[in-house]
Design a protein around this nucleic acid. Structure first.
Length: 357
DNA sequence: AAGCCGGGGCT
DNA sequence: AGCCCAGGCTT
């Protein structure tokens, strides 16, 4: 038996029942694939159910607002996925009569659909013989074939895509692609893979050469940037606050936040808190009002709250600024929760509610 | 080619 | 503390 046969047999016995597995509807497969990009099945599952319920068809999704989609997406991260999701739903609904492209090459034209996602949709929905290459596939192939080329280089990408094509099962591509991913997620895991019960153990190069724990090889290392955030939370005497939309490209684009003052790197470790004056000046600028008539300023958390992302550690302080009144654009405190916000802000709002009310 | 983009779970 | 996750886009 060859490589792909073992995987298909393993899959038949061990596959999980997942909601999108019972469908070949390109809308549902596309939706699940976008949600699962860089996301574990366990984390994405409730979001998939939420989106399918809220938007049963691509036309339903296409008619939603961006804030609505982002609110439903809140907490899942990589928010450009949600913005591209909406853009593609509108493209498919309005320009393509609700019909998704039917081939790998045409699927690539859609926003947010790259080589992996195009291959997944083309193979699962249309039985096109193209191999998926995701994190699981890199790991399974590098271990089984002992391929040591780093996966995060262009030559590595080419090499693994070529290898993936050579060993795929073109006549059972729909199951094969899901099989190799499921196998990587359940059996050939990044840490502590279950080699003892592995049907491929006898012929696995990494297993035979004691290299399981060192494959796949990655060249790059991610440097974590440290930043100091000071959120300015105004509260007026009528119980209003103020939130603004992040329109700049970069982190959390399209989400809402309180006015933000970022202090220079290292300033906090040197004991340099922003002065009260600079905090109020920043708020004044954000609100577009010169005289704020501030009553008092309260530091909500005494030690910075560290919010850890893959590539940034955000040392965050929230300041509650009580003032007489807020200009037009203010919102009632109770409406804070209707806005799509980063998890960091959502956690603050929850804590603030419990202390304020 | 390299950097950026989230949040959570596991070790 | 570090790694990884059913990757893709921007620079």
């Amino acid at each position: 038996m060859e490589f792909s046969d073992h995987l298909l047999n393993w899959y038949a016995k061990n596959k999980r029942e997942l909601p999108w597995r019972s469908s070949r509807d390109p809308y549902r497969i596309w939706l699940s694939e976008i949600i699962l990009q860089q996301t574990r099945v366990a984390q994405g599952l409730p979001y998939y159910e939420r989106f399918v319920n809220a938007f049963p068809t691509v036309h339903d999704l296409a008619s939603a607002s961006e804030a609505e989609v982002l609110k439903l997406w809140q907490g899942l991260g990589y928010y450009s996925r949600a913005r591209n999701l909406l853009a593609t739903a509108r493209e498919v609904s309005r320009e393509r009569g609700g019909k998704f492209p039917g081939t790998y090459n045409d699927l690539l034209e859609l926003k947010g659909v790259g080589p992996y996602t195009a291959a997944a949709i083309a193979s699962i929905c249309f039985q096109e013989a193209v191999p998926v290459v995701d994190g699981n596939v890199f790991r399974v192939l590098s271990r089984y074939f002992g391929e040591v080329t780093p996966i995060d280089t262009s030559t590595g990408q080419r090499k693994f895509r070529e290898l993936a094509r050579e060993v795929m099962a073109p006549d059972a591509i729909r199951d094969y692609n899901q099989a190799i991913m499921e196998f990587g997620a359940m059996q050939c895991t990044p840490r502590n893979p279950d080699c003892d019960s592995c049907p491929l153990a006898d012929s696995c190069v990494a297993r035979g050469t004691q290299r399981v724990d060192s494959l796949p090889v990655k060249a790059g290392k991610t440097a974590v940037r440290k930043r100091n955030f000071h959120y300015l939370v105004p509260v007026d005497k009528a119980g209003n606050t103020w939130m603004e939309l992040r329109t700049t490209s970069g982190i959390w684009q399209g989400l809402y936040q309180f006015p933000l003052l970022e202090s220079p790197p290292g300033s906090v470790t040197r004991g340099e808190e922003p002065t009260q004056k600079s905090l109020l000046a920043a708020l004044s600028t954000a609100l577009g009002e010169k005289d704020l008539m501030v009553d008092r300023l309260v530091q909500f958390n005494q030690t910075p709250k560290v919010h850890k992302l893959s590539h940034q550690h955000l040392h965050t302080t929230f300041w509650i600024i009580y003032l007489d009144h807020l200009p037009a654009g203010r919102i009632p405190l109770a409406k804070m929760e209707e806005k799509p916000v980063p998890v960091l802000i959502a956690k603050f709002i929850e804590a603030f509610k419990n202390s304020y009310f």
